[in-house]
Design a protein around this nucleic acid. Sequence first.
DNA 1: CGGCGGCGTTAAGGCCTCATCAAGATCATT
DNA 2: AATGATCTTGATGAGGCCTTAACGCCGCCG
Lengths: 225, 225
Amino acid sequence: MTRVLVIDDEPSILRALRINLSARQYEVSTAADGTSGLAAVARERPDVLILDLGLPDMEGTEVISGVRGWTSIPIIVLSVWGQESMKVAALDAGADDYVTKPFGMDELLARLRAAVRRSAPAPDEPVVNTGHFTVDLAAKRVTRPDQADVRLTPTEWQILEILVRNRGRLVTQRQLLQEVWGPAYETESNYLRVYLAQLRRKLEPEPSQPRYLLTEPGRGYRFQA
Amino acid sequence: MTRVLVIDDEPSILRALRINLSARQYEVSTAADGTSGLAAVARERPDVLILDLGLPDMEGTEVISGVRGWTSIPIIVLSVWGQESMKVAALDAGADDYVTKPFGMDELLARLRAAVRRSAPAPDEPVVNTGHFTVDLAAKRVTRPDQADVRLTPTEWQILEILVRNRGRLVTQRQLLQEVWGPAYETESNYLRVYLAQLRRKLEPEPSQPRYLLTEPGRGYRFQA
DNA sequence: CGGCGGCGTTAAGGCCTCATCAAGATCATT
DNA sequence: AATGATCTTGATGAGGCCTTAACGCCGCCG
């Protein structure tokens, strides 16, 4: 079942969407302002977000940036007719699609289907299982076979995420340093050694003889699934 | 440079798009009907397709299906206002986005950027197989037929990468030395002998009689696949 | 026939990189 | 302001890679 979160401050629209989407087997939740909307995205992890730009407490682009900061779920934006500059700003901020109010329910549903379809193949394997641990790229979580969560610090997760997204491929030290710490740290390969050691201690069955987080001396690191 | 193909039968729109897109550093090509449009997609492999639904010879959805049959490039659809059912059909047929005529150029450009951004991650580098080993340039990895990794040092890989990228062609000693060690080492052909010997030992079935890493006496080396 | 230059092979030493540990600095939270 | 977690930084030993040199082989040419 596809989960849809609607962020809109007009009760009539919320009700209409809730009825129509529920009837089509979507699982609908709602929020009435940007603050609670952002919280709801983080809490409920919906599959699609429908966002009204005219919220009482925040700019629409702020909400979009807030969501895009950590996830790439499709965002469909709603706004009143004629505000083309807002459309542009919203799309550039990272929205995926745009519907003008008043809108036909058929069009919204079609765009919803298209958005879900597009996002489906993008994270083409959001969960990677190694036998000793499971990495869920969408949920940003690592779990052991006994369902226990592995606690990772933000930096640890960033490194692991890059390696897992490039699983099988060699990732150079420069690439890792650049993506995690920024271009100025390209030579600080010391950082990588420290963090790879920590990741191995938390993930590898035998940290001193890594099976998954492999070092390619002088070249970089590789995640082997 | 991003290549855009526009399929539209109205000369004025074609001209407007060509001018505006070219000015923004897009590479623009055009087609005036569905048949030639499909041919152009296959021939030119554009990065994005802008498609008018009101073509003289084919239904818009037919064109979309024809493209979607073999590629997943982003498709942005144009249509006149009010034809909501066509929008719906186009999105369901596999279009990625939709713009209503008359449209503002800013909006179209924003949607274009969004479409390109969504489809961005698709750089595929070649994999070269010799029968005795496989070189994966993207993963920076060499494997044997039994899936075993071949461990290469950074310098070994650099040399192999240059030779494989120029497979079939002669690579001069000077070129290799310059690219791996820098211009100051142009005469140190000794290095090459040492490293070619190591590569052959690791890769060739019969290191003393190379089949893949061939020496062209006095000139350089060549990778034969 | 003998010298010469280019190539392949091998081995040893120096140096660089990696893994690991630990302590100080910084950040977030209360 | 204090506490705990996280990040940064430095030091150390071990291992591997790069460099360098030596030697034998082969073909070419005087």
